[in-house]
Design a binder for these strands. Sequence first.
DNA 1: GACTCACCCCAAAGCGCTTTGGACGCGGTC
DNA 2: GACCGCGTCCAAAGCGCTTTGGGGTGAGTC
Lengths: 345, 345
Amino acid sequence: MKLKDLSELLNLSQTTVSRALNGYPEVSEATRRRVREAAEIHGYHPNVRARSLATGRAMAIGHVIPLSSRHEMMNPVFTDFTAGAGEVYAARGYDMLLTIVPDNLQEQTYRELRTKGAIDGLIVHSPKLAEQRIHLLNDIGIPYVVHGRASDCDEPYAWVDMNNTHAFRRATDLLLDLGHRRIALVNGLGDMDFAIRRQAGFEEAFAARGLEVDPELMAGEEMTEMYGYDATRAFLVRPDPPTAFLVSSIITALGVRRAIGEAGLRLGRDVSIVTHDDDLSYLQNRGDVPMFTATRSSVREAGRHAAHMLIEMVENPAAGLPHELLEAELILGQSTGPRMQRAAE
Amino acid sequence: MKLKDLSELLNLSQTTVSRALNGYPEVSEATRRRVREAAEIHGYHPNVRARSLATGRAMAIGHVIPLSSRHEMMNPVFTDFTAGAGEVYAARGYDMLLTIVPDNLQEQTYRELRTKGAIDGLIVHSPKLAEQRIHLLNDIGIPYVVHGRASDCDEPYAWVDMNNTHAFRRATDLLLDLGHRRIALVNGLGDMDFAIRRQAGFEEAFAARGLEVDPELMAGEEMTEMYGYDATRAFLVRPDPPTAFLVSSIITALGVRRAIGEAGLRLGRDVSIVTHDDDLSYLQNRGDVPMFTATRSSVREAGRHAAHMLIEMVENPAAGLPHELLEAELILGQSTGPRMQRAAE
DNA sequence: GACTCACCCCAAAGCGCTTTGGACGCGGTC
DNA sequence: GACCGCGTCCAAAGCGCTTTGGGGTGAGTC
């Protein structure tokens, strides 16, 4: 069933049918109703390719997932973010185009996406410190929203980010208030922008009390469970082991907890953990007293925000570049307690 | 830069340029080279919408993610599956269209996807026991591959699945061999096809030894960490608690482990766990001796298989409906050991 | 009754590509 | 020398939609 068939069926021109369905005022309400009903009955949906060829709009948003050959990891955070964004796209009539790209083909992929005309805008995931993609995309000239920020980039761009520095400042303050001084930072990969900001918040809290962080107690890696486990084991065998852990992902925190348990230490008594919690649907840190004390910020909600922003930019290109900084809640759970004096002390 | 521009630049017709780029034999090698070079230099890429309007092929594959309003969960398994499929799509020049759909709009969405002409084929996720989508899609007449199977469906369809029954039969046998008799099954949602097959494997192993399963020791829910924790706590306070747990997801297994730890039981000594392991990149169960004894089957690999299959079906519709049954490996880890005699016994 | 003005509707162009159905020139065959 | 076949190339139609620029009809105005 195509437009032509439907118009012939109704004894109307294609113009009128098209206008009726798209809500143009040049058509009487009676006709519009008649057309709408017929379209409904015959299950007519305009061919999106023909439509977007005619309008110049793709009605699709691209998500480009960088897949580093070193890691080959599909970020779970991305999953929830996408789900949030997907809801918004669906509600506003956009499709979501997912592209998984090896690191080395990034530039080519972005340029192609543009010239191929497959999308109206895109989301940039996992920005690094100095993010070349921003420059590239400004050059290409396509609307985009960055999930996160790029500290070392002075070009303008739209973004949605969580206040990483502040969240980790507060989390560190909590641990310091509890008397902890040897705090390990189990962070994400060192070149990721969020990891840098979190470390900054961590250091800020120490500095504000005239304390110094021990660089030996900071680790940065892809945030897997295994990494949390391995890093924690390494920390615990040190001569002066940490009494608290500040962790960048709840998945990694599970690994930290495992290593702590295996070492015979009791969580929340002998050792404390504060973790960041993206509120992933399959790893909810909830309950009367949540498992982990955490800085919580729903990444799914961030996805919704980013999608709204981007669609707004696409439909109204004249407006400026929006930003949005989301704050994390500090949730008190079972994994923290005052620093215990060691038997040896 | 569009075809017309490029052809004028080269003093050739659009026909010739198009043919040169698409490898048709009617054009001389010299011209083809000239065209290819010019296209490269000027970064020409054909507009995909125009092309697919002309060819009738969308060059895109759809993934429809059902989002039940009850749960609002974005399956982590899906993430890795998608990554695997995405690799293949990219390599074969297809785009991936992701649609997140509330349960109640499924049918409408599938039909629209078809008539809108946005995709050439699609992947069906998370089939249930009696899967109406198969009937629907056969009716619509669009190529698709199911990730999993639908036991109660006698219509033909293409699928990629893991041998759930066999994997859980083997896992159960292992636990029975170790002397366990009170084994809890911490399964996925009861109406999911994979959960039914896993339970069948579980029961088969018991039946083969003339033993009976205790229906009180079987749970079925969305496979979150929290669920594993809650279910296990409930099992452990029973008068005759299980000595082993067979779990359907490594995420849930983490919750099971947590509850066991909190109860003061030692994993692999007092209590055993065998879990299914989809080999998720962020939750790898590896190392010299993996954390969990597990039935492992890479869901990412399944994604690759499904994508290949589907593209084959799209490009060669005459061929039959392919199937593929992947076997899981049984990995021996730290979480299993022989059944301990209780002090009370 | 002629004129204006809404109001509804239509024919046709155009979006950027592929593909059909030739056209043209050149060497080889009888 | 007429004919054929082959290798190269081209003009134009068509994919299904939106949108421009009218065109007809009837009510309202003087």
